[in-house]
Nucleic acid binder design. Structure first.
Lengths: 154, 154
DNA sequence: TGTTTTTAGTTTCAGTTGAAACTTCTTTCT
DNA sequence: AGAAAGAAGTTTCAACTGAAACTAAAAACA
């Protein structure tokens, strides 16, 4: 009674691949954020900008966008906030008047060097007792799925 | 000059496991959302509620929270919106005056049955040419990482 | 039974994010 | 050179989300 369409209601969210990926991502990201969110009052976007500038020293916002796979809006806001906190300076770009060259200040580098070991430790704990082969297979799978997404334009 | 701390700046975001997971998740979730976001004007939260009620027919909001790993706030809002669209009805729960029993309306079931094949097709495309073993290994890896997260309280 | 504690769900508030429109500067085209 | 097209960033707007406070009802307890 009342239920027509009673056939075929057999979709199982808990074995739906994208659901599992999302759930996994949520756990991993929460774990990593614990390294910097409260202690340094940073957003993931800020941490990622910092991580990229920590390694690549001086870049235009543009390049951070490319390297971080974040949107330019997100990068713009993260950069602004980091400037306000004196973790990042923008010097004018002689080649292009629209963009500034961005780099960490000494205070920014200091913070970066504090956070790096913390996030690496978390990564190590997450990956404890997982073989190199397993890790490689995992990353291979990710690549395959990404390729499939491209091939099928999803 | 100006750069002290020039040593040890060797953190590589692009091989940082949580970054790869996030990036992967972002791609997968975008692919799936394309099945319902524009065509049905639904949020992921609404789709997940629908998916759970589609299978389990009648549940309290509470149980949807557990089954969906979403927060109760998110579920509450998704349910409210689905009620407004007449995709979901709440009938009073004789056992507990605080909660209502939720189920899809016929219109809700119809929508559900339209969306299910679309998301399954997307899942199939994402997983094309990936062996069962690879999938299994991938899920095993996820479980291991989750266990590690628990063990180390991250 | 009456008080306290817990639980279900909602609302409010603040933070994050992306799309689209906009400004400024650069590049291209004629 | 001057106009048109494109690119770099920013701002505005709207949507999603979670934490905390709140309401209402149930369970625990004394």
């Amino acid at each position: 009674m009342t239920t027509e369409n009673n056939k075929d209601r057999e979709f199982e969210l808990h074995s739906f691949f994208p659901y599992l990926v999302r759930d996994f991502y949520a756990e991993v990201t929460r774990a990593v954020q614990s390294a910097y969110r409260l202690d340094y009052d940073m957003s993931p976007a800020e941490w990622r900008c910092m991580a990229i500038l920590g390694k690549d020293q001086t870049l235009a916002a543009n390049e951070i966008v490319t390297l971080s796979s974040m949107g330019k809006v997100t990068v713009s806001r993260a950069v602004k906030r980091m400037q306000e906190r004196d973790w990042l300076v923008a010097s004018s770009n002689s080649d292009d008047g629209r963009s500034k060259m961005l780099s960490l200040t000494n205070a920014g580098v200091t913070t970066y060097l504090e956070i790096v070991p913390k996030v690496l430790e978390i990564e190590n704990k997450l990956l404890a007792n997982i073989s190199e082969k397993q890790k490689k297979d995992f990353l291979d799978m990710i690549d395959k799925v990404k390729k499939n997404r491209n091939i099928h334009d999803l």
